[in-house]
Simulated scan of single mutants.
Amino acid sequence: MPISIDYPHDARTRTPQSLTPAAIRAIAGRVRRQVVDGAGAIEPALLADASKSLLINGLALSVAWDFDHPVHDEAGHEVLGVCETDPDMPGAAFVSINSRMVAHRPHLAISTAAHELGHVLFDVPTAGRTVRRYRAVVRSAQTLTQATRQIEARANEFMGALLTPPVLLHTALLARARDEGLRLKRAAHSGRPGSPVVAGDNHPDALAGIVAALAAEFGVSDRFIAVRLSCYGLVEGGIA
């Protein structure tokens, strides 16, 4: 059964309307529930298998995944992944994850796959356009147009919320914080409604230990967890 998702878009061009981070997170949550039950890590093979068939705003789309070859951009630079379409094959998308760059780094493989799936969901349905979207290790901000920055930010937000949903991450954080006796406080956040966040004046080593444990639980890097905790406002002042 295909993953089915709908979001606000232009009915003529299928271009997504401007989506807030909260809206993107909600879409990611709906996708996640069709891939896996509950908290924990998503394996790259599971995500690829679950997303071979998609129904996006009523548009049927097939996705071919490749994890077995290196990937380069048009300039020959090696990139982590790419999402492509072929105008001669409407209704199909092709996602390649760089086998050499993600070898023995499952957290990088799943984050790249989730990022490229974001491009599939939001960019591929757009009528009349060839799509080629990369995930690069380093990309100079000066080389990106405003539109490209917005597209990449949307794919990144989708990736973050798919792999570490706000409520699930907040719930896991609080369980570990209470076990470690960390101080909590009330503050605005995007996590579990009515729950506190971790106070910013806890010992950095204790916070680092919890970040590492959460990274292992969700199958991502420590830095990934730190960024999502900061984005969701789950640690007072964020994590440097």
Score class of each variant (00 low, 15 high):
73 D>K: 06
74 E>D: 15
74 E>Y: 07
75 A>L: 14
76 G>N: 15
79 V>D: 03
79 V>P: 05
80 L>G: 15
80 L>D: 07
82 V>A: 15
82 V>F: 12
82 V>D: 03
84 E>F: 03
86 D>F: 14
87 P>W: 13
87 P>G: 12
88 D>V: 09
89 M>D: 14
89 M>C: 12
90 P>W: 13
90 P>N: 13
91 G>R: 05
93 A>L: 13
94 F>I: 12
97 I>Y: 09
97 I>R: 09
97 I>H: 11
99 S>R: 15
101 M>E: 15
101 M>V: 14
103 A>F: 12
103 A>K: 14
105 R>I: 10
108 L>N: 04
109 A>K: 11
109 A>V: 04
111 S>L: 00
113 A>C: 06
116 E>H: 07
117 L>F: 11
118 G>R: 01
119 H>D: 11
119 H>G: 05
119 H>V: 09
121 L>Y: 04
122 F>P: 01
124 V>C: 11
125 P>H: 09
125 P>G: 10
125 P>N: 08
126 T>V: 15
127 A>G: 02
128 G>D: 10
128 G>S: 11
128 G>Y: 05
129 R>D: 02
130 T>D: 06
130 T>L: 08
131 V>W: 01
133 R>F: 02
134 Y>D: 05
134 Y>W: 10
136 A>L: 05
136 A>P: 00
137 V>E: 08
140 S>M: 08
140 S>V: 00
140 S>G: 07
140 S>Q: 06
143 T>Y: 02
145 T>H: 03
148 T>H: 04
148 T>E: 11
148 T>I: 03
151 I>H: 02
151 I>F: 01
153 A>D: 12
153 A>S: 12
155 A>Y: 03
156 N>A: 08
156 N>H: 09
158 F>S: 01
159 M>H: 02
159 M>N: 10
162 L>P: 05
164 T>N: 01
164 T>Q: 07
164 T>G: 00
165 P>N: 10
166 P>H: 03
166 P>W: 02
167 V>Y: 00
168 L>E: 13
168 L>T: 06
171 T>D: 14
172 A>Q: 08
173 L>C: 03
173 L>G: 01
174 L>G: 04
177 A>T: 10
178 R>N: 05
179 D>V: 04
181 G>Q: 06
182 L>V: 08
185 K>L: 12
185 K>E: 14
188 A>R: 10
189 H>C: 08
190 S>D: 13
190 S>V: 04
191 G>D: 11
191 G>R: 12
192 R>V: 07
193 P>A: 06
